[in-house]
Design a protein around this nucleic acid. Structure first.
Lengths: 152, 152
DNA sequence: CCGAAATAGTGTTTTTATATTACAATGCCC
DNA sequence: GGGCATTGTAATATAAAAACACTATTTCGG
C-alpha cells in the first residue's frame, strides 16, 4: 500500500454500529490515543502518565490514592506509574505530614519544565483536532456532552 | 462504602485535562465499555466481539481480513475471536468459493436470534444514554462529530 | 486506652488487548 | 513457470487493567 491511510472499505455496511455512541467513541478515542503515542512516546509518556502529571501539577501534595480516585484508576496501578515518573525525575514522593502510611506527590523542578513542553505538544495536537469542528462553541458543546456521558 | 458512586473528589483541579477532548473521550468510552460489560458479559460477549458479529450479520460472506480491516483490527486478532464465536455457534467459517486461502464468515441460525437479543440489550443501553442528550438532533450531531474525530 | 475495622502503599498474579513476527498454502501477474 | 503479495495461523511479546493478599498505619467505638 502506497500511503498509510487505512481506508475503511466503503462497501462494508456497519449496520447498527453506525448508530452506537459506544462504537463511535471507541473509534475516536483510539485515534486520539495513537496520535498521542506518536507525539509523546519519544518522551516516554503515555496518556495515562500524562493525566497523572497533570493532576499532580495542579494539586501538589495529593496522595497516590487521591490521584487514582480522581482519574478513576485502581490505586495498585499507581505504584508502577509513580515509580516510573520518579525515575524520570518528573514527580517525587515525600512522606505525608499527618499520615505515615502515605506519600504526598510533588513535581520536581525538572518536572515543571518537562510538563510545559509536554502540554505544549498535547495542546497543539488538541487544537489541530479541534480545527475540524465548526467553532469554539461546538468544542464546548462536545466537551460538555462527553462529560455528561462519562457519569454512570 | 455504602453506594457504588465513585464520586470524583470535587476538590481536585483537573487543569488542562478538562479542556482535552482526548481525556473526555477516554472517560466517556470507559463508561460505555464498563456498562456494556455489565450488560453482556453473562452472554460472553465483549464490545469487540459484538462489533464483529454486527459486521458479519450485515455483510455475510466477508473474509476474516475484510472484517478486521473494517474494524481497524489486525487480522491476526481475528483468529481467536472467530474461534470463540464459532464455538459459541454464532458465526461459522465456510471455505471461500474463489479463494482457497480464505474463509467466508456467515451467521448461524442460532447466531441470528442471538444477535437479535444482543442488539436489543445494547440498543436499550444506548437509548438510556441518549436520553441524557437534548434531542435526536444532538445525538446525530454527536455521532457525526465523533466520526470526524475518528479519521486520521 | 484497647481492640476492631478501615485505609495507604505495595507486591503478586491474572486477565485482557494488542502488536509483532514467522510460516505454509494459495493466488496473481508478467 | 517464477517471483511476489495475501490469507489464515501460530507463537510471542507487550502492555494495560483488575483482583487479591499483605504490612504498616490510622481511626473510631466503647
Amino acid at each position: 500500500m502506497a500511503d498509510d491511510t487505512k481506508k475503511t472499505d466503503p462497501s462494508v455496511d456497519f449496520g447498527i454500529l453506525n448508530s452506537l455512541m459506544g462504537y463511535r467513541l471507541r473509534r475516536a478515542q483510539m485515534n486520539f490515543f495513537s496520535k498521542f503515542s506518536d507525539l509523546c512516546s519519544d518522551l516516554g509518556i503515555s496518556p495515562g502518565l500524562f493525566a497523572i502529571i497533570a493532576i499532580v501539577e495542579r494539586n501538589p501534595g495529593l496522595t497516590q490514592t487521591a490521584v487514582a480516585q480522581a482519574l478513576g484508576n485502581d490505586r495498585s496501578a499507581m505504584v508502577a506509574a509513580v515509580d516510573k515518573l520518579e525515575q524520570m525525575d518528573i514527580i517525587e514522593r515525600r512522606p505525608a505530614k499527618n499520615d505515615r502510611r502515605s506519600y504526598a506527590l510533588f513535581m520536581t523542578k525538572h518536572g515543571q519544565t518537562f510538563f510545559k513542553t509536554l502540554s505544549t505538544r498535547v495542546m497543539e495536537h488538541e487544537q489541530s483536532m479541534a480545527a475540524r469542528l465548526k467553532d469554539d462553541k461546538e468544542l464546548d458543546w462536545l466537551l460538555k456532552t462527553l462529560d455528561i456521558l462519562s457519569k454512570n
